[in-house]
Each structure stands twice: as structure tokens, then as C-alpha cells.
Amino acid sequence: MAIKFEQVNFEYPSFDGYNFSALKDINLEIAEKGEFITLIGETGSGKSTLVQHMNALIRPTTGSVTIYGIKIEKDTKKKGKVKLNPLRQRVGLVFQFPEYQLFEETVLKDIIFGPKNFGVKESVAIERAKQVIKHVGLDEEYLKRSPFNLSGGEKKRVSIAGILAMEPDILVLDEPTSGLDPKGRDDLLKLFMGIHNDLNKTVIIITHDMNTVYKYASRVLVMNEGHLVYDGLPQELFSKENIKSWNLDIPDIITITRQLEDKLDVNFDRQPHTIQDLFELVKEVI
């Protein structure tokens, strides 16, 4: 197991004494390879707090997170023995807004900033930058440009390239597709699928878009009020009763299939996964 949560609780301290409990009794295991996980739940349910534990940005109030064999607990840092940076290199975390991380004059300098912090030689880092910029679907010519004169989608890609250049084993993305139009969103998701398939990395995505969950995820985690309430296959999630109480949408394809079944008064023998599937099913009944 690459990452293991054991009985993790986390509280945000507050000045007035009423600490806000963001995570409650989380138990979770994430494999190093081959998983494409989506993490969902309404705003404030603890999704971001959960992923910030995955690269030891924050430490559990009680319980422990084991990342590549290194146990992180409340007082880990005080003991001073554990170096956290190697963990952050292995678990790459991309924040929601690229503006949080872009700061250099050129895209190249920004991409090599991460690797250099982890002790990679500059020449090696530059080679990596040339590789990753292509991976995120941008031209090598972009390396010379200023990161601030790019469109929103391009900035997002550069920020992802900056993390990919660290060559993490696991890639975690906090709401990577929010604010993008459908085309920008689909392009990015294909990119993540590519990273997952070609580079054989585990990818974890926080999202609010259930279509993404249904279409891409091999596993889905649902957070609700600090609890991890579901961990399993997306297909089974959307047939569950309590999905409404978790304030989650239903993917469009499921909604329309149900409505069609209702209105045409038929029962399809399987749940369609794509519009093409649904077309085949409808074809059979008319």
C-alpha cells in the first residue's frame, strides 16, 4: 500500500475554542499503481483536508497516515527525525487554482522549481520540463512564455506539468476541472487518463462533476460531513439509496436512461455507460 489512513481525525484549531472537526475516523488505503480514483462530496465535507494528509502537508489530530512506510502522526514533526520532503515528491498534489503556485518569469523556470527543490540537477530538470510540457498537451515553445500571460486552461496545464516534473508516483488533483468549459474539462480528463494509463500512476481527482466520476473512475470515495461514507465502484454508488442525503448529483446518462425507461415503459437489461451504449439499447426497443 502506498498510502494508508488509520482512524484519522483532524480538527482545525480556532481562536474561540470550538475546534472545527474536518475529518472523522477515516480508514482508507490507496495503491501505488493502477487506480483512477475520484473523491466527491459537497463543499466543506473534508475532501481537501483529506488529500492534504496524503502528502503530509497537515498531520492528523489523532490516528495516523502511513505514506510509503513512513508513519505520520500528530507530533511527527516535533520529533524532527522524519523528512517530509521525500514524501511530497512521491505524492504530487496539484491545488485547485494554478495561481497558487505559478510565480516564475517563464514556464520553464516554474516547472523546474519543484524538481530542483527535491535536489534534481538543473540540466536533468530542464530535460524533464521538455517532456512534461508535451504530456500536458502544450508546445515546447510555451516553455519560454510567461506563466501569467496564459489562458486559464493553459495555466492549469502548466501547474500540472510543474508537479509531473517532480516525477511523483501518485498524482492528486484538487478540483482540476472547475471553472473550465466542457471542452477544456474533457481535454484535461483525457490527459489524466493518459498519465494514468501510459505512466502507470495512481491518479486521484476531487470533483463535483458526476459525469466525470461515472465515465472515468475505477473507484470512488464519497465524503460527507467529515466521514468517508462510500468507497467502491461508481456503478454501485449511483444505485444506492442514500446518495440523495449526501447531496450528490446523478450522472446525466443514468438520469436520462431512467427517464427513458419510465416513459417508454421498458426495462433495459443493463446500465449503459456511454451514449453509444444507450443508443444500442434504445435501438432494440423501437
Partner: peptide, 25 residues
């Protein structure tokens, strides 16, 4: 991004399968 029902409609149109009832739905 086209709406799914619309996409389905187009697919049915192309295959010449549509009928008024389905179209209406």
C-alpha cells in the same frame, strides 16, 4: 457540449430509427 438526449436524437436520426413518440420524449 451537446445535451445527452439531443445526442441520442441525432444518433437515432442518422440511423433513421426515430419515431415521433421517442422524439417527443
Amino acid at each position: 457540449e451537446l445535451l445527452l438526449p439531443l445526442k441520442l436524437q441525432y444518433l437515432l436520426d442518422e440511423a433513421n430509427l426515430s419515431n415521433d413518440k421517442v422524439k417527443d420524449i
